[in-house]
Nucleic acid binder design. Structure first.
Lengths: 389, 389
DNA sequence: ATAAATTCTTGACGAAGTTAATTAAATCTC
DNA sequence: GAGATTTAATTAACTTCGTCAAGAATTTAT
């Protein structure tokens, strides 16, 4: 019997999307279990799952011994087949392109970098297309259809336009369509921090939480919020600017024009300035400051503690306003998070209001490839168009 | 042909709810217009609207001249019949009960007060039932089925339980079911600030905005947020605590245990304390302080400006984090908002980040009956159970 | 008058998911 | 160890909701 080529992820109805995302994000689950968790009938799950199995996206595991105690037919859990499709994710920074290929679970399978010698749109598009070509050499190519791209700044995901990127100096660049022409892939564009939040929501700490926040600390300080299962986009394209939450009235002035912003105290640059001030060494490097602080240099430890304090205050503001279930704080660059963590937690504990303090606080480093993985997660999510838009 | 009694609001399907809310909140609209705004087919609108017309909730207006230029059959707009059903709203404070009866549009038709002589649950329930009886004397009674109750503190709307009310000293009181027994009405319980936000979302500044915030300034400082059309509830029941956003590192300590909270600077009590300090008159009353500030007393004006500044910083934090389309700041009590307004706007303009500053800022007084109206709006919204929960 | 434009209604149809009955595969009980 | 019990999965009939396409209604334009 000749078999026609199996279809791409057959997401044809809300129920299909629900079932597929449930299995994708919550690991192997039996059909009844999916039904219980989603509120669908078990008949609906059976129907929705079949096309995915036929198309190779899901498989039925053999019942592995007893799961629940007692009698009853053992379950045949549904599991994702991660290798059924690959996704490309690229993060564009001011200096380079970071690219990864991931599977359906957003696990990284390949990665590559590419320096950017110019910020011209054409140059970036070409470099990105080259990078994608490089990443997709070999067997990955046949099963990759989607590309996710993450850029910092004001990005309109729906239209695929970079409205404003300070780093690149771009305004209103229709990057998604340019890249579709250049690569032949379906392209989804997203703000970089929001992309990270998507990765976290689907494949990380955010799984199962209807609201959570992701905070990134580094050159800038940003965040993305998920409320009631939806990413907060901001009516005017701005949201999650925890870096510009004012926490120290009359504090240092910030490049945004305000004063006492979290970023004016706790960004890498602000910390370095402060460290040079404290030590009286204008040539002090960040690496040295970190090393000495780790070694026990009290004045320098104070500098990092002050930054941690400011971040803790910003977190408290965020948590008191939104009351998320969980917050992930992720630190870029030199992984200095060990120097902040204590102070962040202490300040947060003092300033979080009532039971908002029960919110889980995860603090961990942020390998720079993670940004590209976020972009890939956005590409995975783009399978569910009707759901997301 | 004998006609059976018309049914209560026949909200039987998502489309029915959509059509009814659209007509309710967006005034008279033609069917095609409803279809365009909601994405439904015009056939679906026709079908969904009919039962509402039959039950007396909607009516069809005669085509009033040309609305659009050019040819074509003139539209027969659908309009709400506000008197079809009445709603009772009661706000419980520490000292008294404030009650109103409104129509479907949440316009107040009757109001009454009732002093509370005790905080005992039974006493409050009895007093509230009496108040409702008083409010519903006369013709309003026959068409009132729903009661909304607003209480400050941690309130679980879904289960109708007051989890914690500092003012009343209550914990885990199943107020909704107690009141259903006492009044015979369907009772919906909601946090007071969230109730105000619901009133605003459906019948005020929030109409048509997918995200906005409501901030109340008075004894306490609170807020409620609507994001993507949904009220933010907070994973642990806490959200919108703008009063406890830290804006002044090292500032005055707050009863919550933190320091530099907005409420520690701009609550009525904090202002009074500060005013007494500045003038050196420990017996100074709020009314006097307000009068003298309005009269031009500079040190006292400074006190109010400082409060406005703190509120402006809190607003900036809120807006930078979630980028609402609009913010309503509403001032309780002595309507001192005229003394804050300027400073709030100035500080906000400086600290709001980028285009987040484009968010509309409405500052206006908050008559205390408004709280009860919020409760009534929640009762109106409770018609749409499947939609809201 | 006739044509064109626009609103509203109607009935057939189709998609999606539910209920209820059935089959399947295990453990429990005597 | 045979039948009862329990849980999982499937199947088929049915319900519900909303769309589509066609047409009726009511206006302006020519």
């Amino acid at each position: 019997m000749p078999r026609s080529a199996p279809a791409r992820a057959p997401i044809t109805s809300p129920a299909a999307a629900t079932v597929f995302t449930t299995v994708l994000t919550e690991g192997p689950v039996s059909r009844v279990d999916v039904a219980r968790r989603t509120g669908l009938s078990s008949a609906a799950v059976t129907k929705a799952a079949r096309p995915f199995i036929e198309a190779g996206y899901l498989e039925e595991l053999a019942s592995e011994g007893r799961t629940a105690p007692g009698a009853g037919r053992p379950a045949n859990p549904l599991a994702i087949r991660p290798d059924r499709e690959y996704f490309v994710g690229v993060k564009i920074t001011g200096d380079d392109l970071i690219g990864v290929v991931t599977d359906l679970r957003a696990d990284v399978r390949a990665s590559a970098h590419h320096a950017l010698t110019s910020h011209g749109v054409e140059h970036v598009v070409q470099a990105l297309a080259d990078l994608v070509g490089e990443l997709l050499s070999g067997h990955l190519r046949e099963r990759a259809y989607c590309l996710g791209v993450a850029v910092s700044g004001d990005v309109d995901r729906a239209s695929g336009v970079v409205r404003y990127s300070p780093f690149l100096g771009w305004r209103d660049v229709p990057l998604a369509s340019l890249l579709e022409d250049a690569t032949g892939l379906t392209v989804t564009l997203e703000n970089d921090v929001k992309a990270l939040a998507v990765a976290e929501q689907w494949f990380g700490e955010g799984v199962g939480a209807s609201s959570f926040a992701l905070v990134t600390v580094g050159t800038g300080i940003g965040s993305a919020l998920v409320v009631n299962g939806d990413l907060v986009r901001g009516a005017h394209g701005v949201a999650g600017e925890i870096g510009h939450v004012p926490v120290a009235d009359g504090g240092p002035s910030c490049h945004c024009g305000g004063r006492g912003c979290v970023e004016a105290i706790a960004s890498t640059e602000a910390i370095l300035t402060h460290a040079r001030q404290v030590t009286g060494e204008p040539g002090l490097s960040m690496d040295d400051a970190v090393t000495r602080a780790r070694g026990g240099d009290e004045p320098l430890r104070e500098v990092f503690a002050a930054a941690g304090h400011a971040i803790g205050l910003g977190l408290a503001a965020l948590v008191n306003l939104f009351g998320p279930e969980r917050v992930v704080v992720s630190g870029e660059g030199v992984a200095t998070y060990d120097l902040f963590e204590d102070q962040i937690r202490r300040t947060f504990a003092v300033q979080a209001f009532g039971s908002a303090a029960r919110c889980g606080l995860v603090i961990r480093p942020l390998p720079f490839e993670e940004w590209a993985r976020g972009a890939a997660a956005v590409a995975v999510q783009s399978l569910f168009v009707s759901d997301t838009v």
